[in-house]
Amino acid sequence: MDLENQTRIKELVEKVGKENVVVILGGAEAEASGLAAETVTTGDPTFAGPLTGVQLELPVYHILELKDIVPEDVWEDQISMMEMVLDVDDIIKEVTTYRTQNGG
């Protein structure tokens, strides 16, 4: 995950507490989404960013998992096309792995 984003998430958690933070990913690819999910749960696996060794254990979802709670017209405008393009099952599987590893 981008180092700037790691910093922002870390600061946000410090400010509002981890119980008030949910991470929603929009990555287009399973592996990258999995890495992002790992970063905000068990820490930065690349050992490059500020979340290295920081276990935030935040609840993390990919937007493709949240179709039910997104208003239909917004989904249609923003996501429906990519839903056709992306490997939805792979992405969800990857993100779910890290979420369940952390009991989220």
Binding site: E29, E31, M84
Partner: peptide, 26 residues
């Protein structure tokens, strides 16, 4: 590097848009 096949993703997007607009079957 985890960034996927960029041209392929772009072509799929064009095709998917074509499906949405009715010029292509899924």
């Amino acid at each position: 590097a985890g960034a996927g096949d960029v041209p392929l993703a772009n072509y799929k997007m064009i095709a998917a848009l074509g499906v949405k607009q009715g010029s292509l079957e899924r």
